[in-house]
Every structure is written in C-alpha cells, then in structure tokens.
Design a protein around this nucleic acid. Sequence first.
RNA 1: GGCCCCAUCGUCUAACGGUUAGGACACCACUCUUUCAAGGUGGUAACACGGGUUCGAUUCCCGUUGGGGCUACCA
Length: 474
Amino acid sequence: MTAPRLRFAPSPTGYLHVGGARTALFNWFFAKRTRGTLILRIEDTDQARSTEAHTQVILDGLTWLGVTWDEGPYFQGADGARHRADAHRLLKDGKAYRCFCSKTELDAQRQAAPGGAETYRYDRRCYRLAAEEIEHRIAAGAPFVVRFLMPDEAITWDDAIHGPITFQGRDLDDLVILRSDGTPIYNLAVVSDDIAMRITHVVRGDDHISNTPKQIALYAALGAPRPIFGHVPMILGPDGKKLSKRHGATAVGDYQIQGILPAAMRNFLALLGWSPGDDREIMTDAELVAAFSLEAVQKKPAVFDLTKLEWMNGQYLSALPAESIEALVAGHLAALGVLPGGQDIRPAIDAVKSRARTLIQLAERVSVRLDPARATLEPKGEALIKKMGSAYAENLRHAIRALEPIPDPEWHPDPILEAIKRGADAAGIKLGDAMQPIRVALTGDTVSEPVNELLAAVGKAVSLARLATVAAAG
RNA sequence: GGCCCCAUCGUCUAACGGUUAGGACACCACUCUUUCAAGGUGGUAACACGGGUUCGAUUCCCGUUGGGGCUACCA
C-alpha cells in the first residue's frame, strides 16, 4: 500500500477555530503515524469572504500549535482552470447540465413549492430543455450555471470514524458546480483538488457528512477512485451548543495570548474526542502519534473544558525547567509593563511555576517579586482581607516587630522563618495567621512561594515598608 | 418539514455480552508543609427511556425522547 496523503483545508473566512485546530491535529497525528504526507490547502474559492489576513492568522495558528505540513500551502483559487475543465468534462459526458434559471426565478420556485421553501428541490426544468433551445440561449449570451446531475441511487461509504453511512441520491439536489461567472463551487473544487493531489484520506469536520455523498457522486462521475473519509465530531461550548464567539475564546490565538503552551494545547485537544484506550492523559507528541487511530475517535461532540486545559497547562508548566519558558515569561512580563532589567528571572520562575496554570498567571506572580509596588490589594481587596483574618493589621505589626531586628546580612529564608515563628509565639497566634497577611500584603494574592523565601527575595527594606503601609491602611 | 449523524459521572473518557461500571478535570474531606500552592490518600457522582434478542445486556436490534449537522450561484 502506498503512503497515505492527507490534507487540512481551512477556508480563510475567519480565525483558526479550536475545532479546526483539532481537525488539523488529527490529520497530523494520522500522517505521522502512517508516515504519510500532510498537505495544507487554503480553500479560498469564496472570494467575497476570503482575506489574506485570515490566511495569515490560520498559518500562524498552525505554526504556534506545532502542526507542520509537508506540502503547500496551496491556494484553491489558483486552480480555477482545472475546476472549470472538470466541470466541462461532466457537461460533455452528460453528467452535468446548464441551468439558465436566475436566482430570482429560483427563489420564486422555492416559494411556490408545495411543501414550502424547505422541501424545495430543483425540478430539472433546464435539464429538459431541447438542444436547439440551449444553443439558442448560449448564442444569445444568456447567463447560466452548471448543475451536476445527481444520480438516483444509494450512495454508501464506510466512514473511518462513524462506520457505514448511506444517503439516497434522490434526496440530494442537483448541486451547482459552476457559478454563472464560471467560478467553481466548493464541492466541485474540493473533489477536483483531492483527485489532483491524489488524496487518500479525507479527515474533516462532522459538518461535512452531508457533503460527502455529493462528493462521492462527483468522484464517480469524474471516474476517479474515492478516498477514505473520516468525520471528526464538533466541539461544543459549556452550554452544549456549538462553540462560538459568545463562549469566549475560540481561536487558537486566544489561547496563545492567555499563556497556554502549544504542547499542552496539543495534548488537551488530542484528548477531546479521542483517547489512547488506556488511562494515560499527559502524553508526549511521540506517544500521541504512536497511539492515534481514527477508529478510536469519538462519534459524539465534546464540550470544551477550559478548566481542564488550564490544569493540563499547569502540569506542563511545573514540569518544565525555568530556562525553557524563560523567554515566554519575559514576553508576558513585558506585556504587564514589567522589565526585568538584566535580572535573572529563572529563580522566580522556579519558585512559582508549580503555582500557576497559565503563563499570564506565572508572569504575574513573578512580577510582584520584581516590582513589589505591583502588589496592590485591589481590585479583590475585600476577598483578600477576609482571607487574612480580621486581625490582619495587628498581625502584620507583630510580624514587623519580629522581622525588624534581623540584621541585613542575615536576611535569608531560615532566619526569617525563625523570627516569624518567635513572633507568632510571642503574640500567641498560629503561624498561618502570621504568614498569610504577609503573603497577601506582599503579593496582593493568596498564593505564592513560601513566605520566608518571598521576604528574602524581595529584600528587607522593601518588605518592611510594604508591610507597614498595608498595616497602616488596615 | 426532508435527509443524515449522535447518546456512560457536571465535563473529557474506559468498557468491544458476565466488572463492586475504571481513570482524569472540577468539587469535598484527610495528609504532607508549624505558611500558599503542588503532591499523596479517600469520598460524592453516570450506563436517557421503552421494547425486543440472549441463560445474561451499558454493550446487539427496533422504537421513543433529547441533542446536532446539512438542506445556497457559502465553505
């Protein structure tokens, strides 16, 4: 058997949606797994909605995700001549016909249909036109579209994900394959391209299931062998509806901005609608590729669980050495307006990386160390003060008294911890009640590295000044 | 409306006729750390419903219900 040839074929009419990203990923896994070829094809036959900017965003999204392709990107719009040639071949073979009905005539026919516009199917009136009448209209320059003559027969295929699916040709319309301006319609362009590119496996979204019988009929009419089809289910929002903008972030670029690592995104997306069959969850690309199969892809749509994505990202973050995420963290710090200015941020990253789920969170926790002035109690002041306990101002003053005597050269984690313990004992309070107010005062957050290490890193003068300010405010 | 697809914890999933229906996220305890997380241990929580087939159905078949997709001179 020859090596499989696959394609990922987004249309540049929007951003790279997570659903599309997952489809691309599944294609990539399959191609890698079978040592096949993955082709990127931009479906830009809809000139009105396609833009170069969208194409670039899709390319960037794929690149960020780490999905690589072996051929392309090819642009479908560049192959109009071949699409037209295929359409005319069908015309010549009597497998397609010219339709002179205008859009307004069609609308009128739809309205007049017995069961209403919903049940309307083209009545083939132009197919029944006499040859001389057709010649006459062409000669008169009447505009026409080319319609495919849908055969009246059962169309069946064995879907790699869904199993056998059957449609009846009579339920399908005679679809337009060439517009009146001579440009091809999606279904023709796809089939024409997939034949020309010798595609063996079409792995795409579930929403194309009902296009598949039309395309299979086109393959047959063009005398070409059809590929194996596999239809990946959609991704839903938390409310069970199709994932869309109103659910928040749906473009892969959004997750890049939020500080999700590409590897975590790949791992998460892979597990959305697919599983290796055992209990593994955190998996490397190599493991994913080795375990992947279309048969194991779920048939039902999956709800996108942001919380689990963030958990998984946190797993990657804490497992990675500081130097490998240093540059990314620096980028997010810059976005926060904090410049390390030559400081080594790696110790700070190591101190908080297991306490963050996104790079943004990680950068925020690093930033308060670099610039303690950022440690504001706003905007969640109420909640933070509650966490510190009602006596927090008093407890902060205990802490200040305990810490002040430490000489500068001894301002290190261990002596600091000892001093806080002694102070807590003297004041008759629990260590936690002594620690948490300090943490909140210094970071504006309830989560940070151990308080004594934090104090040591921030420095004595800055720490005490900050504690005094918060204590005074309380 | 017509055609097609789908249905296990709240969510992601395992199970391919016989299991105390397993794992993960989230949640709740406990634990470790005289501090926050992370980690560890445990817990709550599911086979949509009704008929068949079978010695036996979450699993196979049919129906119901409920979701979803398509039904363009969009992709």
